[in-house]
Simulated scan of single mutants.
Amino acid sequence: MTGKIGVLLVDDQELIRVGFRMVLEAEEDIEVVGEASGGRAAIEETARCSPDVVLMDIRMPGLDGIAATQSIVQRHPQTRVLVLTTFDLDEYAFGAIRAGASGFLLKDAHRQEMLAALRAVHRGDAVLSPRVTRTLLQHVSPRLGTPAADEGGRLAALTERERDVFLAMARGMSNIEIGESLYVSESTVKTHVGRVLAKLDVRDRIHAVILAHRLGVAGDPLV
């Protein structure tokens, strides 16, 4: 890689890929390293070009984005997947989150929203709005099941401050908001977040939120 964020574009519509490529390649810190028109091609291209982030369409003929996401996450844990959907209540998008995607983005999102989401997912700092996070949890919670013993045991590895950060993340708070509530700097929060994710063995914030609700320690509901 060149120090830029390498992005793989996956969409069965060529015009959509062209539009995204034009937007992304106008940014100095982003490079489109490949394209794919379907799920199987996305898996092959990920193996070939090792992207940092896959911008993944969900509804595609053949192998859909959910199955492709699951395969990519399992085979290439260093690669993040940001799924594309047409509306924020799309069951397919929630399925992709459960498969290991790091977040989802509406196809009609503004240019700056897309760029911010991509950069956030790349740095492992993806934050969905409380409304979207709440909706996500409403969809996945009934299917979470009883937490495994080792999941509960992971909490014991957290320090008191790390647990505070974990619970704040579960409530949908951003790094800035967490810093303000705990009276620490944003950089300190980022350090704590990294340690929390590592100790809990979760890929990113969104999966930490799901784990918190799975364990029943999320506290106040998101508003």
Rank of each mutant, 00 (worst) to 15 (best):
T2I: 11
G3F: 13
G3L: 13
G6N: 12
V10C: 07
D11Y: 04
E14I: 13
M22D: 13
M22V: 11
E28P: 07
V32T: 12
A36E: 01
G38I: 03
G38T: 14
A41Y: 09
A41V: 14
I43T: 07
E44Y: 07
R48E: 10
P51E: 07
V53Q: 02
V54Q: 01
M60I: 13
G62Y: 10
L63Q: 10
L63M: 15
D64S: 10
G65I: 00
I66A: 02
A67P: 03
S71D: 03
V73M: 10
Q74H: 09
Q74W: 06
H76L: 03
Q78P: 07
Q78W: 06
T79C: 10
V81K: 11
L82Q: 05
T85F: 10
D88S: 13
E91Q: 08
F94L: 12
F94S: 05
A96I: 11
R98L: 15
S102W: 01
L105D: 03
K107F: 02
D108N: 15
R111I: 09
A116V: 12
L118G: 03
H122K: 10
A126C: 04
S129T: 15
P130A: 09
R131H: 12
T133A: 13
T133K: 07
R134Y: 01
R134A: 05
T135R: 03
L136V: 06
Q138R: 15
V140Y: 06
P142C: 13
L144V: 03
L144W: 01
A148G: 15
A148H: 06
D150R: 08
D150L: 01
L155I: 15
A157K: 14
T159L: 10
E160F: 04
R161K: 12
V165D: 02
V165T: 00
M169L: 15
I176W: 03
I178S: 06
S181L: 11
Y183H: 13
E186N: 15
K190P: 00
A198P: 05
L200I: 02
L200M: 15
R203Q: 07
D204C: 12
D204K: 03
A208P: 04
L211P: 00
